[in-house]
Write a protein that binds this DNA or RNA. Structure first.
Lengths: 243, 243
DNA sequence: CGCTTAGTTGAAGCGAATCAAAACTAGTGG
DNA sequence: CCACTAGTTTTGATTCGCTTCAACTAAGCG
């Protein structure tokens, strides 16, 4: 929601070697040569919570890879209504393909936490795509995954009750956090505040709050403060997420 | 919703030449050689309204191209709740990429009208993808478009009122019909019944019906029967679709 | 012409939104 | 350390839009 300025740096050519997601994401499937070429055109960017990355125009077609932090893909209306259409965790990427409107059109990436991005300018990235079909192959694979997930979310938004939405959301985040942190502990922090949760599952903050409270009262969740989840009864939470 | 059996035929090698979508869709960008190879592995299928095409398992990863008719991509729950996650018109295609779960997982394609499909078995299609990067390129482009549209629909499902949903739906279909028929006339038939409209925009049939009636009463729509639209006041309909 | 299915209309109920206020949190500076 | 402020979350009371339930009408078809 706030200003745009962000730190942008070109790092040394071996920076990918120490990248947290060197072996995941797009990069995981690439040879040293391919990585080197990517490295040559990348612009690394850091954003603070609330800052936006690109909204429209030529830039909107850049290819963006999240290396650390959490971001949300937002579509908003003039009247204040907002819908989050996806979350981006480390190793997720968006945009990129050389077609008329990239998936970023009319959307914007907004940092939720401190965020680090690898941004690949569209024109130079396209050239690489032609040269290395494997990169395009990987991107297609991810795009189909995202499409699948978007359609899952359509079911949530269109057909689930508030209770089910909240439960589904918590399960989704819990899984993401388990993947990210690789921790077996049930304990983790919600990356989103109530406003953002509401905007992600199509409810109001009050309704979200009420249903989280209900889950706590019923012993399905144990929390510490409004963001830290200490324990989850997955079996019962899954039941409440409803199909 | 009904049984599965369908007519499947292998046609002569030049059948693509006379296909209605030879110059659109995936096929439009392909050379004669590429088309010939596709032709060699395609299974053409006809479905009647209500019939389903694949649901799960290995088949679910086939690549499917609609050549005529309208289909819906459906995700349903055990308890009867249903969400349509996309419509398929001639030249649309789904599935195909060689990744873990294709976008078809847990979805099914259901014929809305008489439907003709080109089905490409996954394994043989994958081989072609490797050989002809242009095919994969085209598919990626389409996947990104679909992803964009799915996210647009998430906004509709999560943040729009019933009135706005109905208006948005009508605008969407009107545009599709204009593309398909190439007719300048305002008149066209809704491909979906009330149940299906409701399942597409996350409402009940009663609410859909009420809001269509309201649009008619207000003179925004002129209809003949429950499926034929004779005239649309696009300006006012667009206003009611709300952003 | 009855039979079945799809669509419309009405009345009542309910779940989520809205409006309003209190409780908590976190940050700042005295 | 506490007082003060701003922002977030929780809780409560009320309203409203959509769903539900039910009856009726229209359309397609043997």
């Amino acid at each position: 929601m706030s200003a745009h300025s962000a730190v942008s740096l070109r790092f040394d050519p071996n920076v990918c070697d120490t990248c947290a997601i060197r072996h995941a994401s797009l990069c995981g499937a690439l040879s040293r040569d391919e990585i080197a070429e990517l490295n040559a055109i990348v612009v690394r960017t850091k954003l603070s919570p609330g800052q936006l990355h690109v909204i429209e125009g030529e830039q909107a077609r850049d290819f963006v890879n999240v290396t650390s932090g959490t971001a949300k893909l937002v579509r908003g209306a003039e009247d204040g209504r907002t819908q989050i259409v996806g979350l981006l965790f480390p190793s997720d990427f968006v945009g990129g393909a050389g077609n008329a409107h990239s998936e970023l059109d009319f959307h914007s990436i907004e940092a939720v936490t401190e965020l680090e991005l690898c941004v690949f300018p569209r024109d130079r990235f396209d050239a690489l795509l032609e040269k290395y079909p494997m990169i395009e192959h990987r991107i297609l694979s991810k795009a189909l995954n995202d499409l699948h997930q978007a359609r899952e979310w359509m079911v949530l938004l269109g057909r689930k009750t508030a209770q089910e939405k909240v439960a589904s959301f918590l399960l989704y985040v819990a899984e993401k956090m388990r993947n990210e942190g690789c921790k077996e502990a049930d304990s983790f922090n919600l990356p989103l505040g109530r406003v953002e949760i509401a905007d992600y599952i199509g409810l109001t903050i009050e309704t979200v709050s009420r249903h989280i409270t209900k889950l706590k009262k019923d012993g399905v969740l144990v929390m510490d403060g409004s963001k830290t989840i200490k324990q989850i009864d997955y079996e019962r939470l899954t039941k409440r997420a409803g199909f």
